[in-house]
Write a protein that binds this DNA or RNA. Structure first.
Length: 559
RNA sequence: GGGCGCGUGGCCUAGCCAGGAUAUGGCGGCAGCCUCCUAAGCUGCAGGUCGCGGGUUCGAAUCCCGCCGCGCCCGCCA
């Protein structure tokens, strides 16, 4: 057994390549299409080399191949050589790897600092921004599974203009605090909205906000104390929403902490810095980078620092001791990130910064905007999801407590999955029906299969044994093959920084289990077949639970 | 105007990185399935010029070039 854990499918693949090497073919096999075996070797490249018909080459090679215990058939079909996995070997390797937990073991890897959300603490999270925490949290879970030590950070932008606007509003305006539960994010957002409107209309308001910012940067203790309290309360509201959808942040890092360090770093950038009207910027054309914009400002004319400079300081600090950094960012940050990385690497070439970009969630009417009232808050979406789930549960025999807990799990999972099941770079148009779909490609569909499997295991009593040669039904084999892929899916998802691959896998697994459930009765079978099928169900449950946990979906035993 | 991304049946979506054998699947529509391990499930039917045009290749949804449409960015905001 390798120390890296058991990547079952890779064992089969390497065996196929070994068989080919033994007859002098040094090409690797690919996955075959459904109906054409498990792996295939297209012979077109060989045909070109040997100037022979690929179909003839395929036939000649196939005749020389011996499948051994791993392959029960290897045959030429046209210009392809198709490898068919031996079901018995598949069942024994897969079930052993899953039931021993070996399939979930990955080689330990270095530390990753993953930053996500980092929304300005000026209001509640809305669904336009919800992609960030959900993708970020899931990515963190996947990287942990893959063997990394992961620290999740939320960068609190307390030093910028937006927060100064909020603070100015709280100090100078009065609002009716009519919002629910006393959640600060909902309570205080009105001050921010009102203050932003005023600042647009009246120059003296804008000046007041700037003055506040200058005092904040200068370290005015009274103001700092005021800000810590208000922003802290705002963050509590945001954190509460995050925790409700299963998103955990390890550290909230306050941007203002980096102001002194940022000033030191600016000194070290003197070879790039230029001055203009008292403001300072770096000129990235001096680095020979090919960007459409090369001037990035570090200081305003009044000497206060800008986000770009503070972010450089933050990333250098994060880079210490991390094997790499992951930033989960909206597509609007692409240019910023490119420039940021160029500067950070200019000073610290060893810091490995990797972005995970996503496109925005928009409303059918257009981009979400708190100010225009074009907004759906994440809290409201959760409440609506909860209510709809409860409605579905009404005519089932669940106690109130059970129903509430299932509805909460369904709501959280549905929302997370509706985000995760779309490639990150594709835009999403928010629709209630889609975000809260309980059928088809949805979280409830997936979790339902888990509940079905759990129900089988509750009702039967499995002795713990199985016979791999009895699991020969095509549907049993399909399910086993998919489970055997677990290792590869996690690796792919982690290395490509995309939770989406795992989301697809969850759906595929669920679909295959539903087919199995339909075709292969478990509890009404008898003897060793019953035992073996129960082993398969237990293995499915084990893999599925792990997949659900990595996606942050709630594994419900009943629903 | 320039840079980046996206463009697959009425709607949404897979496959694109590493080009191959009949282009995934869902929603909606129509027609069926609960004396049988949970019907949040399953089966069948209808529906596609893979944005358009070139190119590379034995072979292109996939790679390259051009164009069109949409989004994001091009701030002494973040």
């Amino acid at each position: 057994m390798q120390c890296a854990g058991m990547d079952v499918l890779r064992i089969f693949r390497e065996e196929a390549n070994r068989i080919l090497r033994d007859v002098g073919v040094n090409l690797g096999v690919e996955y075959a299409k459904e109906g054409f075996g498990d792996f295939t070797l297209p012979c077109f490249p060989l045909a070109r080399e040997m100037k022979k018909n690929p179909a003839i080459i395929a036939r000649e090679i196939a005749e020389k191949l011996e499948g051994g215990e791993y392959y029960h058939r290897i045959e030429a079909v046209g210009p392809y050589i198709n490898f068919h996995i031996s079901p018995k070997k598949l069942a024994s390797l897969t079930l052993d790897a899953v039931l021993s937990g070996e399939i979930f073991r990955f080689e330990p890897k270095g530390k990753v600092v993953l930053e996500h959300t980092s929304a300005n603490p000026t209001g509640p999270l809305h669904v336009g921004r919800a992609r960030n925490p959900i993708i970020g949290d899931t990515m963190a879970r996947i990287l942990r599974e893959y063997g990394h030590e992961v620290e999740v950070q939320y960068y609190v932008n307390d030093a910028g203009l937006q927060v100064a606007t909020l603070l100015w509003g709280i100090k100078n305006l009065s609002r009716d605090s009519r919002y629910r539960d006393g959640k600060c994010d909902h309570l205080l957002v009105e001050y921010y909205q009102a203050a932003s409107r005023l600042a647009e209309e009246r120059e003296e308001v804008m000046e007041g906000i700037r003055e506040l910012m200058r005092r904040y940067e200068a370290g005015d203790e009274e103001l700092r104390e005021f800000a810590r309290e208000k922003i802290g309360c705002m963050l509590d509201g945001i954190r509460e929403t995050l925790e409700r959808i299963g998103v955990h942040v390890d550290r909230f890092v306050w941007e203002s902490e980096f102001i002194p360090i940022a000033r030191e770093i600016a000194e070290r950038l003197s070879d790039l810095v230029e001055e203009e009207d008292g403001a300072y910027y770096v000129d990235l054309s001096k680095l020979g980078v090919n960007m459409q914009k090369t001037k990035f400002y570090l200081y305003r004319r009044d000497g206060t620092t800008l986000y770009f400079l503070r972010d450089i300081a933050y990333h250098i600090a994060k880079g210490k001791g991390a094997s790499y950094l992951v930033d989960v960012l909206g597509e609007d940050h692409k240019l910023h990130f490119q420039a940021l990385r160029a500067v950070v690497n200019h000073l610290h070439p060893d810091i490995d910064m990797r972005p995970l970009f996503y496109s925005f969630v928009r409303l059918p009417e257009g981009k979400m905007s708190t100010r225009k009232g074009l907004v759906v808050y994440l809290d409201d979406l959760l409440e609506e999801g909860y209510a709809r789930a409860l409605e579905v549960l009404r005519d089932r025999n669940y106690s109130e407590e059970e129903a509430n807990s299932i509805a909460e799990g369904v709501a959280i999972s549905s929302i997370r999955y509706s985000i995760l099941n779309v490639q990150e770079e594709k835009p999403i148009t928010f629709r209630w029906e889609r975000a809260l779909s309980f059928e088809g490609e949805s979280a409830p569909f997936i979790i339902y299969t888990y509940a079905r499997a759990s129900s089988i295991m509750r009702k039967g009593s499995w002795g713990g044994s199985y016979s791999p040669d009895l699991l020969v039904h095509p549907q049993e084999i399909r399910l086993l093959k998919l489970m055997a892929r677990y290792h590869e899916v996690i690796r792919n998802s982690a290395e490509r920084l995309s939770p989406y691959f795992l989301a697809r896998y969850a759906y595929d697994l669920a679909m295959q289990f539903n087919q199995f459930y339909r075709d292969c009765p478990v509890l009404s079978s008898s003897g060793e077949l019953r035992e073996s099928r129960m082993a398969l169900v237990e293995a499915f449950r084990t893999v599925m639970r792990r997949v659900l946990e990595n996606l942050g979906l709630v594994p419900l035993e009943k629903m």
